[in-house]
């Protein structure tokens, strides 16, 4: 009986998922306009930046998982105009540095060259650059760790744990 009720409840809830009613989505629509914060070129650069921060290995990197768009969306919707400006100028600045140092744009630079540029910015004494990079790195980690791929295949998120045990051994390895 209990299980049947639960399954029935779930089925109804799934049905409700099909589309958010207007009063629920109404909160978001105005805040999330279609146009992005960055130009198409800047967006490509940002995707390469997040992919450099968390690259593809035997599992997908942040670029492939769409974390570039997540970073842009978060800065656009949840941050103030100063942070938004710093994202745009920070991304352009990285491209300029790449052209200056390696004679090619950031998206065409080698993996080592890209890492070198980002690692120099992370250690930079320039507060603006450092602030920009720390924002992008933190959002990249957040977007990556909360992506469907990582939560499903790596950290094994449980939507419905159905239990709480107050004292269990720490799993080794």
């Amino acid at each position: 009986m209990e299980r049947r009720v639960a399954l029935k409840s779930m089925a109804v809830a799934m049905g409700a998922m099909a589309g958010l009613p207007s009063w629920a989505s109404g909160w978001n629509k105005s805040a999330v306009a279609k146009s992005g914060l960055l130009s198409a070129d800047q967006s490509k650069n940002l995707t390469m930046i997040v992919e450099t921060i968390i690259p593809k290995t035997d599992t997908p990197g942040a670029g492939e998982l769409g974390v570039g768009d997540f970073v842009q969306k978060m800065v656009k919707d949840c941050y103030d105009s100063k942070a938004q400006a710093s994202l745009a100028s920070g991304v352009s600045n990285i491209d300029e540095q790449s052209i200056q140092r390696f004679g090619k744009s950031f998206v065409d630079a080698s993996k080592e060259q890209r890492l070198q540029i980002l690692s120099d910015i992370e250690k930079s004494s320039d507060a603006t650059q450092k602030g920009f990079f720390s924002m992008v790195k933190n959002l990249t980690i957040q977007g990556y760790m909360t992506s469907e791929y990582v939560m499903t295949n790596i950290t094994h998120y449980e939507m419905i744990p159905a239990r709480y045990h107050g004292c269990v051994p720490v799993k080794k390895g």
């Binding site: 779930m10 919707d77 909360t146």
Partner: peptide, 13 residues
């Protein structure tokens, strides 16, 4: 409306 949404389905997490 949000009861069965997975964490990654919230666009601002």
């Amino acid at each position: 409306p949000t009861t069965n949404m997975m964490p990654w389905e919230f666009e601002h997490r």
